[in-house]
């Protein structure tokens, strides 16, 4: 594919754009000005960057208070600490309170690689999507990161943006219009659907290209919004054939779980869930860990071939949509 990007650049550029247009926009950080790529923001709006120090519970509470005071805070920190350390504040001060706070979970998934499981954030989707009133978004490339930031700012309520520092190519065509709660079909197909988000979308597209060479037509659905999930797009995919979900997250309660919840209720089909298999990762770089746990285009390809073969004799009854 094409050039690789660090989506944090699109994130910080979007935050500056938003702050220029709306004086209510502020950034809150936990000593993470550098890791959240907010040096330019700080220079531009020194009074609108609030550094609370290394104190995530306080940071999320302060975010709720800033929103009570009429501001629109983007609360930015490494996703592992922002969600895990402050989970009760996310539940009560943001979700239950319906506070207009945007959580930006930086370096999510296994982006911190060799730093190990303490710094991996592969449970954050399960945690945040279990909380009522939360909107949960996992952008896949710079354009979607920027669009998700603008959509989050325009939406009145708590949003968790799960961002990455892993290099990714552009996966969306020019003119792509992001909508909260809507999946984006990036590639049509007739045999099965690959549903992915975040840094796994480009890998799903690569897998689909590999499958095409073997005569398998795989659709690729980018499911950036995990809550509320796009039920219509999932039911359409299920009506067509089996589904593989691919996520940079544990398979317990993440994207795969969210998709499966819709599939089993609305249109049961065979599924495979690719992700981290419910164990803490060994030492290794992100790319090493993706290889180790099979989150590569080639392994997606193999999983797809196997699933299509298993489903060869299976026929599905009626399309629930009539």
């Amino acid at each position: 594919m094409n050039t690789l990007h660090d989506c944090r650049k699109a994130f910080s550029k979007a935050l500056i754009e938003l702050a220029e247009a709306d004086p209510r926009i502020v950034a809150v950080v936990n000593d993470s000005v550098g890791s959240s790529n907010l040096k330019d923001f700080k220079q531009r709006f020194p009074d609108r960057l609030i550094n609370v120090g290394i104190a995530e519970q306080n940071m999320v509470g302060i975010g709720a208070g800033l929103a009570n005071g009429g501001l629109v805070p983007f609360v930015c920190g490494a996703s592992c600490f922002l969600t895990g350390r402050a989970l009760e504040q996310v539940k009560v001060d943001l979700g239950y309170s319906r506070s207009n706070v945007k959580l930006c979970g930086m370096s999510s998934g296994v982006a911190y690689g060799e730093l190990g499981p303490t710094h991996h954030s592969i449970e954050d989707l399960a945690w945040t999507r279990a909380i009522a009133n939360m909107t949960v978004v996992v952008p896949a490339d710079p354009a979607e990161t920027s669009a998700a930031m603008h959509a989050a700012a325009a939406y009145d309520g708590p949003v968790f943006l799960r961002l990455s520092r892993m290099p990714v190519p552009d996966v969306h065509p020019a003119g792509y219009e992001f909508q909260l709660g809507r999946g984006a079909l990036l590639r049509g197909g007739t045999h099965l659907t690959l549903i992915a988000n975040g840094v796994m979308v480009c890998r799903a597209l690569e897998a689909a290209a590999l499958l095409e060479e073997e005569g398998i037509s795989a659709a690729v659905l980018n499911m950036a919004t995990v809550r509320p999930i796009d039920r219509t797009a999932i039911v359409e995919a299920a009506a067509m054939g089996p589904i593989i979900t691919i996520e940079e997250h544990t398979v317990y309660g993440g994207l795969g779980g969210a998709v499966a919840e819709v599939v089993v209720e609305s249109h049961p089909v065979r599924m495979r869930m690719l992700g981290f298999p419910g164990e803490f990762a060994p030492t290794g770089s992100p790319e090493f860990l993706f290889e180790h746990f099979g989150l590569t285009p080639d392994n997606i390809r193999r999983a797809a071939l196997k699933l299509v073969e298993e489903c060869a004799g299976v026929t599905y009854a009626t399309d629930p949509r009539g």
Partner: peptide, 10 residues
């Protein structure tokens, strides 16, 4: 108290 700090800071 954390929320109150945010409100006062706002």
């Amino acid at each position: 108290l954390p929320i109150a700090v945010g409100v006062a800071k706002a």
